[in-house]
Amino acid sequence: MASRTLSRPVLRRRAVTALLYAALVLFAVWVLFPFWFLVNSSFMTPAEAVAVPPHWIPEEPTLGNYSAILAGQVAPGGAQVGLRVLTALGESLAVGILTVVANLALGGTAAYSMSRFRFRGSRLSYFSVLFARLVPPIAIVAAFFVALRDLGLINSRYGLVIVYTSFTLPITILVLKNYFDGLPRELDEAALVDGASRLQALWYVIRPIARPGFIAAACLVFLESWGEFFYALTLTNQLTIPPVLAGFRGFFQFNWTTLAAATVLAVVPPVLLALVFQRYVVRGLAQGVAK
């Protein structure tokens, strides 16, 4: 093939493209390197995990860490984590689902109201939602601690659901209100003209159409709930998975490989959820959370 002489702009453009792809690779490393290390460790024996230099692929891969957790047994190296991790994952799931349900029911109706109706105090309601969104959870933990203690709801999944609603409900309302605002009012009106009540219009017409909004809100709320650490640490005795992972060293005979497996199990649900509903989540994030 004849050698081509390339003009300078073409060369420049190629160099830029090469640089961009190099940056893309660096970006992928930034995201994946910690995960590679985590997943890799979770398939190792404790002995292999301390090898110097480290193995980037397990030489003797083992499922021991996972099976110990899933079967509730003592893990390789003697870590007694099994029971606790599975129960905590279950509790995290329960708290997440209950929080989502409470959010969609309370937030869905309120957002619809704020999008469609004006009433005495509707502005105040909206501002109170915005204000509630700005109050950092950590700033009101003392009151929750005393109140839940007096109510006997310390270390209770329902206690956590109540507390989590305090910082998720404003997000839900903002995301959903934003979504409802984008739906033409003619939809509601047509339903009303056809003889539906206002509640029926909301339930049978708006709710199905607003599904993407609900999915976005549900995902955001579940992710917040699943990863919440501060309240779970202070208001429960390692009820959900975050404090269990954080307290591994203090409470179990420790080994990193078992913690790695538990961490993998804890990180798969939220990552999967976000990937599956990527489009909805990103839109909800941009429209609701950033405002």
């Binding site: 029911a105 309370l106 937030g107 109706t109 309120a110 619809y112 109201s113 704020m114 469609r116 109706f117 004006r118 009433f119 005495r120 105090g121 509707s122 309601s125 109170s128 939602v129 509630a132 109050v135 700033a139 009101i140 009151a143 929750f144 109140a147 109540i162 507390v163 609603t165 305090s166 409900l169 404003p170 309302i173 206002r198």
Partner: peptide, 21 residues
């Protein structure tokens, strides 16, 4: 109707944000 729809959420926020605050 608008007020009734918004009320449960507003009361909840008062209970779990306002009062603790």
């Amino acid at each position: 109707f608008g007020l009734v729809l918004a009320l449960p959420a507003i009361i909840s926020l008062v209970l779990v944000v306002g009062i603790p605050g």
